[in-house]
């Protein structure tokens, strides 16, 4: 079977046929016994392949999710700390001495 016919079958399985391709497919189904047999085989194969699908264990799924959230929180905290440190340095350098008690109070 040539590539074009194979592509037609794949597109049929994926429900992605254009109107012209649908007509071509039905025409082949009516006229070509070999094509019909191949289409049947491919549909069967597709169904069997879907059956090999596994579901990831719920515990593993939850663990991965929690680790991602934790990682995100840690990264946000780290980013905030750097931000705070930079702000503090700048304020200390440029703020007049008189503001320093106010700064301490705000920090608290």
């Amino acid at each position: 079977m040539n590539h074009v016919r194979e592509d037609l079958i794949i597109k049929y399985i994926q429900n992605d046929l254009s109107v012209e391709e649908k007509m071509e497919l039905y025409d082949l189904m009516l006229k070509d016994g070999g094509f019909r047999k191949r289409l049947k085989e491919e549909l069967e194969f597709s169904r069997k392949l879907r059956d090999t699908n596994l579901t990831l264990d719920r515990n593993v799924k939850d663990r991965i999710y929690q680790e991602i959230r934790l990682r995100a929180v840690k990264e946000n905290l780290a980013r905030m700390d750097i931000g705070n440190l930079v702000t503090e340095k700048i304020l200390r350098l440029f703020m007049p001495k008189i503001c320093s008690p106010l700064f301490k109070m705000l920090k608290k």
């Binding site: 794949i10 399985i13 994926q14 194969f45 597709s46 392949l49 879907r50 699908n53």
Partner: peptide
């Protein structure tokens, strides 16, 4: 039987037939 194919080929077949990727 699928295990007899190279991993990349398995991914292609899986993508086409199961994930319905173009």
């Amino acid at each position: 039987i699928l295990q007899k194919l190279p991993g990349e080929d398995r991914q292609i077949l899986y993508g086409l037939y199961v994930l319905q990727l173009k």
